[in-house]
Design a protein around this nucleic acid. Structure first.
Lengths: 168, 168
DNA sequence: CGGGATCACACGGGAATACGTGGTCTCTCA
DNA sequence: TGAGAGACCACGTATTCCCGTGTGATCCCG
């Protein structure tokens, strides 16, 4: 898969007795493409969810904010949050990372984790939580953005596009 | 048909014991033209329907929205829905993808799938559902867009209206 | 205009490979 | 010396490759 730019898809993997999990091969490839054999993990503002980034992405987020407003309190807090709360998980030759007991507890997992792609990052969460998150996002997207998917760049002329959604 | 820009037509293909299906040659050609040997599949708002895109189209949808309003909750949700709910199906040298059992269940298929072109994307659904969707669209088209086809000089009527399968 | 040869494409199956998963062994550091 | 981390290995299943076959479509030439 040459040049996949984003993390996408959901993958459920097993945690072994030592707390190890395989990173989905596709995610791993993307991470390695971006540099190192590691990922940064910080707690999401969403409950029971951790966010994982390639280091560069995390640093990029910070740098962009800092440029805009170097000394603001907001940036201060963010820096503390990002770097203080971050965990660097480097993966071994087999492409696995170790989830510490604290990490596991934070997302309420014991023997399975879900890796859920989310554009330039991905989530780590429990299977149950993943269903909730996905379903909530789907419903809210549908309400607020009805047609967002339909409104594509090259709007077809004649065809069925502007039809009201059916399902019902 | 060199340079066809849109997915059009309906094709019913068989799912083999391993869950593989051949992508209609025309669709495949269009997909490869747009980049890689893969397609992104996400659940449609329509019930029992999956939507398939070239990856770039999906990414484009996201990027356009993100530019407009990077941190809004709506964009957050959409990103989660799009990327978390997506499946990347890359096709093999023979132009086939595998539909996971979950995918098959989501659209209620067991041994046959319909690929239904829809402009810049296409649908995956069961034969029965495809008839429903098509017929519903046809009827609503007629009500709301009465004359649309007649008015457009170049629009080939056949393409949109006919539509029993193009293949056998 | 017809009828045979050729080609493209959908489909099936066996073989090779990738990937997730479990275990062991060693090295390190307290 | 014991606990934990990391490297290394081993295995089974699932995915991908690769080749073969049939059938329908297309082309070609009489």
């Amino acid at each position: 898969m040459p040049g996949a730019n984003y993390f996408s898809g959901s993958f459920t993997h097993r945690i072994d007795g030592k707390g190890r999990v395989s990173i989905p091969a596709r995610f791993r490839a993307l991470l390695e493409e971006q540099g190192d054999s590691e990922m940064m993990v910080i707690p999401s503002y969403k409950d029971g969810v951790m966010e994982a980034f390639p280091r560069r992405v995390l640093e990029g987020i910070f740098e962009r904010l800092e440029e805009k407003d170097p000394q603001s309190e907001e940036v201060e807090d963010l820096a503390t949050y990002l770097f203080g709360g971050a965990n660097t998980l480097s993966f071994d030759k087999d492409g696995r990372v170790v989830l510490s007991p604290e990490l596991q507890e934070a997302i309420g997992v014991t023997d399975q984790v879900v890796f859920m792609g989310r554009a330039d990052r991905f989530y780590l969460l429990s299977p149950e939580r993943s269903r909730e998150v996905l379903e909530a996002a789907r419903i809210r997207s549908r309400e607020k953005h009805r047609g967002a998917l339909a409104r594509s760049r090259r709007a077809p002329q004649v065809q069925v596009t502007s039809l009201p959604d059916e399902d019902a």
